[in-house]
Amino acid sequence: MTIRCTVESAFFIAWSCLEQSGELGPPDESANVILDAIEAQLRTGERRQLMLANRAIDAYRAHAALHRSSWDRAARFG
């Protein structure tokens, strides 16, 4: 499996999980956080798509915990 396919699969797994759980924030920011987490792992040599996805989910949840209040304000005030 190519790196591109691995990244796409890991991203899809992470995105789907977070979407189904209702945890996704703004789409652009969410995608960037997930992809940044996957990219960081690739630099360390990780290639297992489930590991990439699970760690990206963890990274997203940590990021969301820090930014949730600002997302809520933006949603309320447009």
Rank of each mutant, 00 (worst) to 15 (best):
M1Y: 05
T2Y: 06
T2A: 12
I3K: 06
I3F: 00
R4C: 07
R4Y: 04
T6G: 01
T6F: 00
V7M: 02
V7A: 07
V7P: 00
A10N: 01
A10W: 00
A10E: 06
F11K: 02
F11W: 05
F12Y: 09
I13P: 00
I13M: 09
A14F: 00
W15I: 01
S16K: 02
S16T: 08
C17K: 13
C17I: 02
C17N: 14
L18F: 00
Q20A: 11
Q20V: 06
Q20S: 14
S21R: 12
E23C: 11
L24Y: 02
L24N: 02
G25S: 09
G25N: 09
G25I: 08
P26N: 13
D28C: 13
D28E: 15
E29T: 11
E29P: 00
E29Y: 02
S30G: 03
S30R: 01
A31K: 12
A31Q: 10
A31V: 08
N32P: 01
N32R: 13
I34C: 04
I34E: 05
L35P: 00
L35M: 14
L35C: 05
L35R: 05
L35G: 02
D36V: 04
D36I: 04
D36S: 13
D36E: 14
I38L: 06
E39Y: 03
E39N: 12
E39P: 00
A40R: 07
A40D: 13
A40E: 10
A40G: 08
A40Y: 01
Q41L: 12
L42Y: 03
L42P: 03
T44R: 04
T44C: 03
G45Q: 15
G45A: 13
G45W: 06
E46T: 09
E46F: 02
E46Q: 10
L52F: 02
L52C: 10
A53F: 01
R55S: 07
R55E: 10
A56L: 13
I57A: 05
I57C: 02
D58N: 15
D58A: 13
D58V: 11
A59M: 07
A59T: 10
Y60G: 00
Y60A: 01
R61K: 14
R61F: 07
R61V: 12
A62L: 13
H63N: 09
A64Q: 07
A65M: 10
A65N: 14
A65T: 09
A65H: 08
L66Y: 05
L66E: 12
H67E: 15
H67D: 14
H67F: 08
H67C: 10
H67Q: 15
R68Q: 15
R68E: 15
R68S: 12
S69F: 05
W71E: 15
W71F: 14
D72L: 14
R73G: 09
A74Y: 07
R76A: 15
F77L: 11
F77D: 10
G78S: 15
